[in-house]
Design a protein around this nucleic acid. Structure first.
Lengths: 169, 169
DNA sequence: AAATAATGTTAGATTATACTAACATTTATT
DNA sequence: AATAAATGTTAGTATAATCTAACATTATTT
């Protein structure tokens, strides 16, 4: 027994317990935010792949394993693995050694992801963030937006574009 | 061989290859966003735990396994495991069956995470997103913001608060 | 068309996070 | 103080995503 620490609940670090009416609003917010979501939001990464595949198809007409791996900065076996999973999920059709074709569902997800990306990136640029950072952040955020937030952000970005003189960073 | 698909590169889905000067700006953005190797101090999930632990310590003076698990919506063994990892990373001090104490480094990460959360949540509320959704999205986004974006968003939110009449959603 | 290069896939390992079941310790109740 | 309840931990399993090494297929060069 480490006498320096003592009884469990006595490991007391913060403001005192004197304050009995706890302000747990923040904790409740966190709880609420964590209550429904799965931590392994496997769709986030799938969306990344779909987005890149879609862009490649747009640009070159097809998406190869090597190209996908290049733009996502992963190795080719990772691409093969994910592509097989996307196929199992009906987001694309995969034929070994031959190629892939996005399904309608896959295309919809890709487009929606791209739209979020563009929206976020545009917003950050509007408030003065440099393009590179804006893009990087947009990439990180695009999977975590509620439809309502997207709608509101769209409206807001539209407003902002028309009134850029209001806020000069 | 599936004759329906044919030669690899002929799986051609998008706009034609005719367009030789490819617009790969979007792809380059994605590539850039994914290129920086992840040299992280703490993962997103670690930050979640630190945030909850910090809040609990603030409110009750200590953070128990059960409470942490409750607010993060995970089971207690997951908490124990993560707490041990946070200890290994020097973000808190853990003593089996006795309790935990955040280190200075852990506190800094928790505070910074909380600030981002508050900032994002406030922003979403300012543009008309309801509190619950704002919180949920903030929780998802808070780990993915570049310091520059935070700074700019702070400035912007301050401006917005002082000029709420400008944008009425 | 044979040899070489490029590309794609499989197998097996690794890390992060989570879970359940079983067990250990601490706290509360009688 | 003995028992029961609550809390905390370990062990073992699962999934998502990644990697390297080895192998397979397709494309290019000679």
């Amino acid at each position: 027994m480490n006498k320096n620490i003592g009884h469990y609940k006595k490991i007391n670090q913060g403001s005192n317990i004197l304050n009995n009416n706890l302000d747990i609003t923040r904790l409740e917010s966190i709880k609420n935010a964590n209550s429904s979501k799965k931590v392994y939001d496997s769709t986030a990464r799938m969306e990344d792949y779909l987005e890149v595949i879609f862009e490649l198809v747009q640009n070159k007409g097809y998406a190869t394993t090597v190209d996908i791996s290049k733009y996502l900065n992963v190795r080719s076996p990772s691409v093969t693995k994910m592509v097989q999973r996307l196929d199992e999920n009906g987001l694309l059709e995969y034929e070994k050694y031959r190629g892939i074709r996005l399904t309608e569902k896959g295309i919809q997800i890709a487009i929606s992801t791209r739209k979020k990306h563009e929206l976020l990136s545009e917003f950050f640029r509007l408030i003065g963030v440099d393009k590179e950072t804006a893009d990087k952040d947009a990439e990180g955020l695009e999977h975590h937006l509620h439809p309502e937030s997207i709608k509101k952000l769209e409206k807001f970005v539209n407003f902002l574009k028309k009134n850029q003189e209001l806020f000069n960073n």
